[in-house]
Design a protein around this nucleic acid. Structure first.
Lengths: 211, 211
DNA sequence: ACCTGAACACCGTTCAAGT
DNA sequence: ACCTGAACACCGTTCAAGT
């Protein structure tokens, strides 16, 4: 085979990637979504992107760093969807419920990605500052909404962070049960969301709603 | 080296294990507890038990089957602790809270084991009948307690399974946040448990308790 | 700076062979 | 039946070398 045209076209950028980091990350996300996280091999991503097995180490210290970046992107996307649900829902009690639905939907729509974020893979660098920042960001979307509902008198005047942890635990639990397939098909997720969020709101609202 | 005495002692059982399956499983549990699940290699367990690398395949079809057995044992242990908490707590509202505490404590005491049970490792055989049976068993401890509280008029007369899923989601969520280290040290877990179970009971009790 | 191929030390699993 | 060593096809990571 003769050398390809593209190799000769731009000598100042001799290799074929302007943004290899981005390409590798996208490929990793695709692989995780389609095949699951344990099908993710550095060699395969390299091959798919059209690059040597070791080129990845120019952009990520190791496999853990790549997974950390994947998790970071996940928290960013999750926060965006939570904020969107809160704002487009009118920032009231209904919007709060919409946030919960958005949270669970994110996990159900991206189960493997969600698992990387919360799966506790030892390979992941849990102390990475960017990961922590984005994780806090997603949590803060919840804190902000609760604080707003407290200000408007809809929710109990308990410690906001504690309330947010309580809510987070519930939506996280529902999400995990859903993606683990532990809920009855086909409507188990929807049914549990409706029930759980109703009982949640009853538990933390200012005025207890009866039945 | 001359052949050891033990080799000659009992020709009818020529090798050195009466219950290799049990020994392998125990070694796997120890490794998972001490070093985490991704340090678990079949070769290493074999070596630790004093057996060839491939002897394991006589008792487990593959690594996934071993992990499945580990998960199964976990669900059995969890159920035992839930039932113990419920019964020794007097089968009332306090006992219900004790079950929640017992659940979270199990996860916190055995984080790696708990993660195998719920981590969604693709390697695990999620369709294994024993795993499913034990998983259902643990869940049923919750269902039974709730049904009892409903009978005694303490809890709302909603669908018992749905209520149990709601409770399960919350304790599971609290447990996951705890073992992921996402709660403030050193008392974040205890504080959240107190708050979350209080609000949970308020949400699902017959008579709404005020503040 | 960025990328490469070869090499190293692993891993799960298979298989023919021993007792 | 149960166990063994050798072999196979992988994997993450390192490293000297190329442009």
């Amino acid at each position: 085979m003769p050398p390809s045209k593209r190799a000769a076209r731009k000598p100042s950028r001799p290799y074929h990637h302007g943004n290899l980091r981005r390409a590798l990350l996208d490929e990793a996300l695709t692989t995780i979504r389609d095949d699951g996280v344990d099908q993710l091999t550095l060699r395969e991503i390299g091959a798919r992107v059209g690059v040597s097995r070791t080129a990845l180490y120019r952009h990520f210290a190791d496999k853990g760093a790549l997974l950390t970046a994947v998790g970071t992107e996940g928290f960013r996307a999750l926060r965006e969807q939570l904020v969107a649900a809160w704002e487009s829902g009118g920032r009231g009690e209904d919007a709060f419920r919409s946030m919960g639905v958005a949270y669970v939907r994110f996990a159900v729509a991206n189960p493997a990605h969600y698992r990387v974020m919360f799966g506790g893979f030892v390979a992941m660098h849990v102390d990475d500052p960017e990961l922590i920042t984005e994780g806090h960001g997603a949590f803060h979307a919840l804190v902000d909404a609760i604080a707003s509902l407290q200000r408007d008198g809809f929710m109990r005047d308990d410690d906001t962070a504690l309330m947010a942890q309580h809510v987070w635990a519930l939506v996280h639990g529902v999400a995990m049960l859903a993606i683990d397939g532990k809920l009855p098909k086909p409507d188990g997720v929807e049914a549990l969301m409706r029930y759980a969020f109703e009982r949640l709101v009853t538990g933390i609202a200012t005025v207890p709603r009866g039945s």
